[in-house]
Write a protein that binds this DNA or RNA. Structure first.
Lengths: 207, 207
DNA sequence: CTCGACCGGAGATAGCGTCTCCGTTTAGCG
DNA sequence: CGCTAAACGGAGACGCTATCTCCGGTCGAG
């Protein structure tokens, strides 16, 4: 006997519902919520997925890789500043739209999925950053780690975007990038965090 | 019979312990934690204070007023930019040291204590801001509401300061202020949030 | 038509924070 | 010194929320 048609359909319904619910409310949502949103019972959800993490992994599979791709595509842009800004805007846009994605990236990077992709992201982003800095369009006392920090700061900005005005994060991303660009200002008053603390930096944005 | 001496001493011990514990771990701490930190039993804590909120109110009483005072003192500084920066640094320093204070200011402003003081803070900070803007040291497309937003963004920075390096918040506050100062850059891509949303803006920093 | 896989959702289970109850201790008056 | 009312301590009752299971009923597939 092959897979029953209703079973396959319900699995797809669950993944789709999870995509929507996680994006809207983050991983705080319960599997029960997702099941109801899919028009199914709790038991059905737990038969298809052993727990919430498994479903989340399924949903996030593509999204996290996309970030590495965005980084590489940005690196292909000739203008160093535009390239950096493009990377920020693309990713911020994704995260603003998908609260679950933001939480996955900041909350905990200890998933093996994450651990596999991060090194690649870090490498590309560092290239993006140092190129801009060498070109003199990023202040000399900035460091690549500051990019991770800025993403952590955007968390509250996304929250505001949700409750006040959808595009608000663009305003504050631009403000922070102008700060990152300020080449004619006194040196920043504290050294950048060590690269070894990258995970802690991202986690500071945890919700 | 007057108040028993041990009772009075224990009350003081509890307030002191609460000050320390709330500052370190925020309002997530339980009254049981505080009692143990004071070397007392849970029951004792609940006899002196009906609940956690009451204790918190006691502890925060002075701290919130201090912020209004800081704002007024900053306004007395002649240089408009220095005045604004001084306000930011003083308050940020307090909040970096006291996680409970940060949570009280961002988490929920609906306490009557808060509601009483906020108008005064808002008025002073707006004066501080518009003076700097008129002097041309703050970008023309910024708004006083952006100050609240910046405080919300500092939440993750405080978190990093706790786990990575104590002074890290200074780096990122400086970065954001440089963004606020950038007068020669293209206009910010989204309008400031309406003043009526101030509470939502602050709450975006909630932990 | 039959049977086994699947569904649904009530509720068992677990973890956590809040607060109470009451046997024990102790300050301080007489 | 005693005596008594007040205060203490901390185990555990309680309420809440989220995760996950169980089983009678349903339905797709051969």
């Amino acid at each position: 006997m092959s897979v029953r048609r209703d079973s396959a359909r319900n699995r797809a319904l669950l993944i789709e519902a999870a995509r929507e619910v996680f994006a809207e409310r983050g991983f705080g949502a319960t599997l029960d919520d997702i099941a109801r949103h899919a028009g199914l019972g709790t038991g059905t959800a737990y038969r298809h997925f052993p727990n919430k993490q498994a479903l989340a992994a399924e949903v996030l599979a593509g999204a996290t890789e996309q970030i590495a791709i965005d980084a590489r595509e940005s690196l292909a842009i000739d203008d160093p500043w535009l390239a950096l800004v493009t990377f920020f805007e693309r990713n911020a846009e994704r995260q603003a739209r998908d609260r679950g994605l933001y939480e996955a990236l900041t909350g905990r990077g200890d998933d093996e999925t994450q651990a596999r992709i991060w090194p690649s992201i870090i490498e590309t982003v560092t290239a993006l950053f140092t190129r801009a800095q060498r070109a003199g369009v990023v202040r000399a006392d900035a460091a690549p780690q500051d990019i991770a920090a800025i993403f952590a700061f955007l968390g509250p900005a996304f929250e505001m975007s949700r409750t006040v005005a959808p595009d608000l994060w663009r305003r504050y991303l631009a403000l922070m990038l102008d700060g990152l660009r300020a080449v004619d200002r006194p040196a920043l008053p504290a050294p950048p965090p060590p690269v070894s603390e990258l995970a802690s930096i991202m986690k500071a944005g945890k919700r």
